[in-house]
Amino acid sequence: MSGTASVRIANASFSYPGGKAGIFDLSLDIAPGELVVCIGPSGCGKTTLLKMIAGFLPCASGRVLLDGEDVTGVAVRERQCGIVFQSYALFPHMRVWENVAYPLRVRDVPISERQRRAEEMLDLVGLGGYGMRLPSELSGGQQQRVALARALVFKPRVLLLDEPLSALDAATRLSMRDEIRRIQKQQNIASLLITHDQDEALSLADRIAILREGRLVQVAAPKSMYDKPADAFVASFIGRANLLDGTVVGPHAVDTPIGRIATIEHALPGGAAVRLLVRPEKIVPVRIDADASPGENNFAVRVLHDRFFGASREIELSVGQGLLKIDTASREDITHVHVPRDAVQFLPTH
């Protein structure tokens, strides 16, 4: 297992002078061909982590291994990391093909081969025939493709992408997201992508790594991270979440601000403080006659906000003493909702 990882970060730490910011005792493996998306709030250390792998920042302790080789003290230019910078950082005075061929030029590859391999890479990223243009003559999405081609042309050990889509407009961002995934799969290269966009993380990643204040909170595949978040922070950072603080009143029941909720069986003692997670799309609107008794986990609600998105509605509800967010396709007025028993998850309280 340890021998096969393309990237291995072992107990690495780095702290900025004076501040509390940095990376603290972080360990993460990236398997060959795997795309790990690192996500977290701004200032959580995402970019610091990338710079430590690339060698722009030293490890105060711990090690970085690429393809099994310890590169902890190795200079940036000898680490062979392909990096796509947020600003693209294309060389403005070089033509597109010269930009792509630059890593080969500093490796003394003969010029005819440089041209051939640059053309190949440009074809791969869908920019065949653009070689003689200057970067300034390309759109943002095209510049991004050039940056990707340049980062891959020298067969690096790992591809590092620093918020590659943040400078693009919304439409280009979606298509570039698919392009990055396609090219990364085609090249079968271990990759780390930094982002603060949860949709990007969920749709691109083989695994998501959530970073908070320099520490990894959870590393998991997108589906399992969404379905089984490690704590309330992850639950609210990946996807939308209803978090309810409550008190255990029985083996199947918790009292919360919205009322008593029936849960799946748990082993917690009565009186214990718990935090419950219910995803908004799991809550279903129901019709209940005014004189009928509400029934288990059905709650009378008052609508606070109702946002219509065409295919769905995001509604904020006032329930008892608390609030609930729900996502629904229903067009009906909402008077009651049902919270299915198995949609209620227990999260650790901090």
Binding site: F56, A89, F91, Y102, P103
Partner: peptide, 23 residues
């Protein structure tokens, strides 16, 4: 120009300090 980012990019692509200065 964002010269800093250009130099970082060149360095990560394998360029040495004299090469970065000249290229």
């Amino acid at each position: 120009l964002g010269l800093r980012a250009l130099e970082d990019a060149a360095e990560s692509l394998g360029s040495s300090a004299p090469q970065r200065f000249m290229h």
